[in-house]
Amino acid sequence: MNAQAHPDLTKNQSLVFGSLSDADGPLTAYAILDLLRDSGFRAPLQVYRALDKLVEYGLVHRLESLNAFVACSHKGCAGHGAAAFAICEKCGLVSEFTPDKAIACLEEWTREEGFHLSRTTIELRGTCQACAAA
């Protein structure tokens, strides 16, 4: 997904999204701040405000276990409210995927329990295929 898909992005949101889109992996808010200092970013709050909106728009995901952020790699993430990631503990590779069966199971549980789900993020931690083969 690209920033043009959401016309209401501010300059700061576009810069933060661009940093994440260009990154080889997840970035912390402070890493984003360091990357954007030459663009006028001076305080972490500037980055966090932009990230909050980008997450709300479905353009960016927060990886809770890493306290970091990644640009969404799927169209329409904001529409389905669920994201899943496989995180390699050796090389740091983060792969986004859609586990439809797992999501369906979780949605069934929420209906049965009367739980009002707002967002789902699944994080799998382990070793990627390339690191396992090495």
Rank of each mutant, 00 (worst) to 15 (best):
P7D: 09
C128V: 05
S65E: 14
G18P: 03
A50N: 01
L35H: 01
T127E: 07
S95D: 09
D100M: 10
L36H: 04
T120S: 04
G25Q: 15
C128W: 11
A31K: 12
S19Q: 12
L20Q: 12
H6V: 15
I32C: 01
D100T: 15
D24M: 07
Q129P: 03
S95M: 09
C91N: 10
L45R: 10
L35Y: 00
L93R: 06
V47E: 03
E96S: 04
E56H: 14
P44V: 09
W109C: 03
K90H: 09
L93G: 00
D24N: 08
L45W: 03
L20R: 07
E108Y: 10
G114F: 15
H6C: 12
D22F: 00
L36W: 03
L36Q: 08
A43G: 00
E64T: 03
L54P: 08
V47Q: 02
D22S: 10
Y48E: 05
T127L: 02
L106I: 13
L15C: 01
T120I: 13
T121K: 06
F17G: 13
C105E: 07
L63P: 07
T10K: 12
A132C: 05
G76A: 09
A43Q: 01
F85L: 08
K75Q: 04
R42Q: 11
W109G: 03
R49P: 08
A5W: 04
H61L: 05
S95I: 06
L66A: 10
W109L: 07
L63Q: 15
R49W: 08
F97C: 04
V55I: 12
P44I: 13
T28V: 02
L9A: 05
A82P: 02
A43R: 03
D8A: 14
L20H: 04
K11V: 02
C131L: 08
A78S: 04
T28G: 09
T110W: 00
V94L: 01
D8I: 13
P26I: 00
R62E: 14
S19G: 07
H116F: 06
S39N: 05
N67E: 14
C131Q: 14
L66N: 05
E56I: 06
I103G: 01
S39E: 11
F17K: 12
Q4T: 06
T110A: 02
D38Y: 00
T98I: 14
N12W: 12
P26W: 14
K75T: 09
S73N: 09
